[in-house]
Computed example of a mutant assay.
Amino acid sequence: MDTNKSLPQKFVHRFVPAEDAAQAPTLLLLHGTGGTEDDLLDLGKMLVPGAALLSLRGKVLENGMPRFFRRLAEGVFDLEDLRFRTHELADFVQTASQFYHFDAANVIAVGYSNGANIAASTLLLRPGVLAGALLFHPMLPFIPEQLPDLQGTAVFISAGRRDPIVPQPQTEKLAQLLQEAHATVTTHWHEGGHSINHEDVRQGRTWIKARLKLAAQTDLI
């Protein structure tokens, strides 16, 4: 079943309940510039079949294209708006967990490009909202004045060495910063560009399958 209901601090969104709510995580799907709440549904189903899916549409428009926060130029972010939108998104996820009755402690972000950037910002500004994240083609959104404690948070980063939008050092700085915050970071590099390709999906699926298996084993101890 696919739903799209009104919530406080409303985002246009889709929610697909988990096939087994007691076991599956909720994947928070965050599209790239110009995307919609429908863009990453198939990706979410490929990554974790049967998981709950909460897919949002960005509220900021850039030349008619939805984004999750404003930018001043390519690669130059409006940091004030980024912080505001990050807290708005985090609050919405917590409200949605009560509305749709999913586990707020078991939300994993899946973000692409602009969506990956606001997911990274959420990790840095609102630790605890996300149990983990898969970031496809992200860049460092900002450098926080104080690093959060992300101990126990797992992050997968997939990036292309020929990405014309995100310079490799930007992705490397993000991975380093998350590691300094004590997150467990896995970085996968491929020879592609900025679009999500089969290698992104394959590596992401392998990573999250291993993380979920590890989490299940830990719960049994």
Rank of each mutant, 00 (worst) to 15 (best):
90 A>W: 01
62 E>F: 03
55 S>W: 03
74 E>C: 06
9 Q>M: 13
48 V>N: 08
92 F>T: 09
90 A>G: 12
72 L>R: 00
48 V>D: 09
42 D>N: 11
21 A>T: 09
85 R>V: 12
49 P>H: 07
93 V>L: 11
38 D>V: 12
96 A>L: 01
23 Q>M: 07
20 D>K: 12
57 R>K: 14
56 L>G: 01
89 L>G: 04
81 D>R: 02
56 L>F: 09
66 P>G: 00
92 F>E: 07
25 P>K: 07
98 Q>E: 14
92 F>M: 11
91 D>F: 07
16 V>C: 10
80 E>T: 11
99 F>I: 02
85 R>E: 15
97 S>L: 12
31 H>C: 13
26 T>M: 05
24 A>L: 14
18 A>E: 01
63 N>R: 15
8 P>G: 09
100 Y>K: 08
54 L>F: 01
65 M>Y: 10
62 E>K: 14
71 R>V: 15
81 D>G: 04
46 M>Q: 15
103 D>T: 10
49 P>M: 15
78 D>W: 05
98 Q>G: 06
27 L>T: 03
40 L>Y: 02
71 R>N: 03
17 P>F: 08
63 N>M: 07
34 G>F: 05
31 H>S: 07
72 L>T: 13
13 H>S: 07
87 H>N: 06
70 R>E: 08
24 A>I: 00
61 L>T: 12
10 K>H: 14
83 R>F: 08
101 H>A: 14
85 R>N: 12
37 E>R: 09
70 R>K: 13
54 L>D: 02
105 A>Q: 10
30 L>E: 09
59 K>N: 10
83 R>P: 03
26 T>L: 03
99 F>H: 05
102 F>A: 06
28 L>P: 03
99 F>D: 08
55 S>K: 05
34 G>M: 13
33 T>M: 15
15 F>T: 05
65 M>P: 04
26 T>Y: 01
40 L>G: 07
90 A>T: 13
102 F>L: 04
